[in-house]
Amino acid sequence: MKSTNPEATSVETYFENKYEIVSGKLTEEEELYKENILDHYKNPHNKRKISHCTFNHKDFNPLCGDEITLFIKTEQGKIVDASFEGNGCAISQASASLLTDHLKKISLEQAKKLGPWDIFNLLGIRISHTRSKCALLCLKTLQEGIKEAKL
């Protein structure tokens, strides 16, 4: 996968700087709606509430009406549980499913360093500029949540 600025870890900066995401036309729907994505969309992982979470955060994508609430539970710097609730398009929901899976394998410090390209890698597909907002909603929710919880 083509990589642009690896230091652009904040979703806000990512869109502010308008890094080139994908050029060229996507013609095959298989590229976007491949089985892996559809699977995460139809049978999302970690789609539940965590009642005693360390923090949770809700964010929207007003353009499409996607919404995600992310729940994170940490113990001594480790992410011991991660989950989400919400609704939206296949891309936004599959991203949240994949991200929460990934979060459970890493530390909070590592989570702070996640950037847009990590999400695109998790999805394993090319994302057009417009749909990047859908794909990156879960990451934006995570980053805002961490900021708000002052972790």
């Binding site: 996507l26 729907e29 709606y33 499409c64 996607d66 939206g88 398009c89 296949a90």
Partner: peptide, 12 residues
Amino acid sequence: IHPHDVGEVLNR
């Protein structure tokens, strides 16, 4: 099926 997904496939 989310409208954005419908729009995306139609666009293709």
